[in-house]
Nucleic acid binder design. Structure first.
Length: 544
RNA sequence: AGCGAGGUAGGGUAGCUAGGAGUACCCGCCGGGCUCAUAACCCGGAGACCGGUGGUUCAAAUCCACCCCUCGCUACCA
């Protein structure tokens, strides 16, 4: 029985375009892993999509004078396009506001309700009499009762930093309409009864222990140990899926609830039949990628939903959590709205370059720094000078001296070395250490460059030493072919371009490395990537 | 404030789970080599009181305690 894997990336919330932080922290690693599975011939699907509900999107739609569905679909289309330009190769990139997802949400909700895991909670919530709607705490503005500053919001005072209760605010105003027609009303919402699910969740956490990062495990453990509390799953809003329960029909499901269930709903939309085979399969491994802001949802709440519903869906087998990419000067995931998002990042340089840089710095174990200088270093020195130049010099010299190139076997020494490095590469991917795998590719490029310098094939060519020349260049060309395959997940176009020199025109598989070399002389120089310079630097500076 | 993660040569990292001479990688710097190649490549070298203090130990970057600094989560903004 083979492995069958569902790879998911946290669904980007599309109130704004995803940032480079969103990309590096979940979508890109998921894409790399999925591409690895493809090369290894392991059956899998890669599911992601746009998270479309929630107050921020509803408010943005109001600001843009269009309906929330229209706005969400527009943002979805833009996001999808940008992610595709980033060469993210999803099996299916869907969205949460679909009939299929609604069905999935209802199915799980009704099962949870039937099984007694839904309770209700009453709370006081700000209501704007002008807008005729409940208003999130964050949207209440007024004077701070402690410091008397005027920048107090319903959750916290931006002047003194003190955490506030919205009812404490003096002269509260609704920041949607700007009027002070706020009153506080009591409202009852449904909640997921996590305390009742506690045993199941603890058991789940215990099982997944070895397949989750240290940060995530510690956070999860402390979250559970502090005592689980019911988590509300409905809101007094209009934008979202209406709640199919008597007395709650005027409410919608809270956005996070239909977002996590979106993994299933989106797969259903892709293919109902395949979806069932994957999600209900006993040999299915669910591998989920996300940023560290998403931990509890995936390690506690989402498994809680699946366990409580008892529908037979696969629970996560592995949860990969990424830290943050920081930048002292440039803005990434930190500030919303005006940072470097994937759309304008692509205006600065190409997808392959971003994928390479972000993979090279992937924040797997700790927050990682990204600066303009580092971007330059990686693109110019590593991608171009090491990898690009090796491929070019090897192919140019081999093609120019093709009459001297006899046989196509690799030496025992290099053959062994290649196998060792490839083993390490595969092992790193199996352990989901994509940054390390990329270092394996760079290591091979270094090896190729070292051999060229040490053996000086250009001298051998001058003496017409076909045997000597072939011995060196066949080794180097083998290295190039391995580089092509191993680079492919990170930079698919460049990887494919390398492999075309070996007659490979389809997506690579590891098995192709067992075939004969198949080098095709090519008198054109090979320009895999290009360097970046002042133009790109200026463009990057523009996002400071 | 609580919880979590981190602080390792000028910059960016790995090493810490199962202690063994500061061990490694990339960039930068210095010196040399090469000229097939994208002014690229190769070799050698300098450069670190492993955040601080104390402890355990024959031995600590690694384990323990306390302290300092950075970041994140604790918000009805997934």
């Amino acid at each position: 029985m083979g492995r069958r894997i569902i790879v998911t990336s946290a669904l980007p919330y599309i109130n704004g375009m995803p940032h480079l932080g969103n990309l590096v922290g979940s979508i890109l690693p998921a894409d790399l892993y999925s591409r690895y599975l493809k090369m290894a011939g392991i059956e899998h699907i890669f599911i992601c999509g746009s998270d479309q509900h929630g107050t921020p999107i509803e408010l943005s739609a109001i600001r843009n004078n269009i309906g929330p569905e229209k706005f969400a679909d527009m943002m979805h289309a833009r996001t999808k396009r940008a992610l595709e330009e980033m060469e993210c190769d999803f099996t299916y990139y869907g969205k949460t506001h679909t009939e299929e997802n609604k069905k999935a949400v209802y199915k799980l909700f009704e099962a949870l309700d039937r099984n007694g895991y839904i309770c209700s909670e009453e709370a006081v919530q700000a209501y704007c009499n002008f807008d005729k709607r409940f208003v999130p705490d964050r949207m209440i503005e007024g004077r701070c009762p402690y410091c008397a500053g005027t920048h107090a919001r319903g959750d916290q005072c931006d002047d003194c930093g003190k955490l506030l209760d919205p009812q404490e605010i003096i002269n509260p105003k609704c920041s949607i309409c700007g009027k002070n027609e706020i009153e506080f009303r009591s409202t009852t919402n449904l909640a997921l009864d996590l305390p009742k699910l506690s045993d199941g969740i603890v058991g789940f956490v215990d099982r997944i222990k070895g397949n989750i990062s240290k940060n995530a495990l510690n956070k999860t453990t402390s979250f559970v140990e502090l005592g689980l509390k019911p988590r509300q799953i409905t809101r007094d809003l209009k934008w979202g899926f209406t709640v199919p329960k008597k007395g709650f029909e005027d409410k919608v499901f809270y956005v996070w609830f239909d977002a996590v269930i979106g993994y299933i709903g989106i797969t259903n939309e892709w293919s109902a039949k395949e979806s069932e085979a994957y999600w209900m399969g006993s040999d299915t491994e669910l591998v989920q990628f996300m940023g560290k802001d998403n931990i509890e949802f995936h390690t506690v709440i989402w498994p809680g939903i699946l366990i409580g519903a008892r529908q037979g869906y696969a629970l996560p087998a592995r949860i990969m959590v990424y830290e943050y990419l920081n930048s002292g000067k440039m803005k990434f995931s930190k500030s919303r709205g005006n940072g470097l998002n994937i759309e304008n990042a692509l205006e600065v340089m190409g997808a392959e370059q971003w994928r390479f840089v972000l993979s090279y710095l992937m924040p797997e174990t700790s927050d990682t720094e990204l600066s303009e200088d580092l971007i330059f270093e990686i693109v110019n020195k590593i991608m171009n000078d090491k990898i690009g130049n090796l491929i070019n010099r090897a192919i140019v010299i081999s093609s120019r001296n093709k009459t001297l190139l006899v046989g196509e076997s690799v030496s025992t020494e290099i053959g062994n070395k290649l196998r060792t490095v490839l083993d390490g590469y595969v092992r790193n991917f199996e352990n989901v250490k994509m940054r390390e795998s990329l270092r394996c590719v760079v290591e091979l490029a270094d090896l190729g460059n070292e051999i060229m310098s040490a053996k000086m094939p250009w001298e051998l060519a001058k003496c017409n030493d076909a045997e000597g020349f072939s011995a060196v260049m066949n080794d180097v060309l083998h290295i190039c072919k391995y580089v092509g395959v191993m680079l492919w997940p990170y930079a698919p176009k460049a990887g494919s371009m390398i492999l075309q020199n070996f007659g490979i025109k389809i997506e690579p598989q590891f098995g192709m490395l067992e075939d004969s070399l198949g080098f095709i002389p090519n008198n054109e120089p090979v320009q895999l990537f290009s360097k970046i310079g002042d133009k790109e630097r200026d463009a990057l500076m523009g996002f400071r």
